[in-house]
């Protein structure tokens, strides 16, 4: 396997069984993502794009197939090992922002560092840097409810960057934002990509997917096109 491949999926399948009815959501995904790539996965709802996202984000396990992250097979890792990899290697950006309402912007950004046991001084410094980088230096003490949607998503991006992950997984990051804020968020992701982060974007919007270097279409649990832009 080429050294610059950060993610490689080999014939990944995912079935869900509920009430004795088996549903095949992913029917054999083969995917290679290079380090520093910016890839958009497009698809309608029900196409399996969220399931794929969860598998790539190590939140879910495939029913079949192999997943190599940084050249290592991670499909058989234990819960704890996966938590460790998520913490160090993957930054999540969710559609719902998923910020803790009781905590300040700063504390929200610090959260991943708590689970990496970073010292209070270092993590505070790092979080302040991240918030500043995203133009939130005046909002560090504010709670999510005191921030606009765009600001909340930027706090979430700062949080995703906290432990210096190599991959950013963004699941419909603009889904809850107005066009202007959405474009801002995409510009930030683009900038992060130019700084070397590998970005995987999930969206159903064509113009949002257009920010990525590559787009692939997911339909009926299979990747239909895989083309360079």
């Amino acid at each position: 396997m080429a050294a610059d491949l950060i993610i490689k999926l080999e014939n990944i399948k995912k079935d869900y069984v509920s009430e004795d009815v088996k549903t095949c959501v992913l029917k054999g995904i083969n995917l290679e993502i290079k380090r520093g790539d910016f890839i958009a996965i497009r698809g309608r709802s029900g196409s399996g794009k969220s399931t794929l996202m969860n598998l790539i984000g190590l939140l879910d396990v495939p029913t079949y197939g192999k997943y190599y992250l940084n050249g290592k097979d991670v499909s058989k890792k234990s819960e704890n090992e996966k938590a460790f990899i998520r913490n160090k290697e993957i930054g999540f950006v969710f559609q719902q922002f998923n910020l803790l309402n009781r905590a300040s912007a700063l504390d929200n950004v610090i959260l991943p560092a708590l689970y990496a046991a970073v010292s209070p001084h270092d993590r505070r410094k790092k979080a302040l840097d991240m918030l500043k980088k995203l133009g939130l230096e005046d909002d560090i003490k504010k709670r999510p409810s005191q921030l606009s949607g765009g600001q909340q998503q930027r706090v979430a991006i700062a949080r995703a960057l906290m432990n210096d992950p190599s991959i950013i997984l963004a699941d419909e990051p603009t889904g809850n934002l107005d066009t202007k804020s959405g474009e801002d968020v995409m510009a930030i992701l683009k900038k992060l990509n130019s700084e070397g982060k590998t970005i995987i974007l999930i969206t159903h919007e064509k113009d949002i997917a257009a920010f990525a270097k590559k787009t692939m279409l997911l339909a009926e649990g299979l990747i239909e096109t895989n083309h360079e832009k």
């Binding site: 984000g57 939140l59 819960e79 704890n80 938590a83 460790f84 998520r86 913490n87 160090k88 999540f92 998923n98 803790l100 959260l111 991943p112 689970y115 990496a116 949080r159 432990n163």
Partner: peptide, 16 residues
């Protein structure tokens, strides 16, 4: 529940 899910996604281990 959501908070727990988020913490786990961000790297909280079961024992945390």
């Amino acid at each position: 529940t959501r908070e727990i899910g988020l913490r786990k996604a961000l790297g909280a281990k079961r024992k945390d």
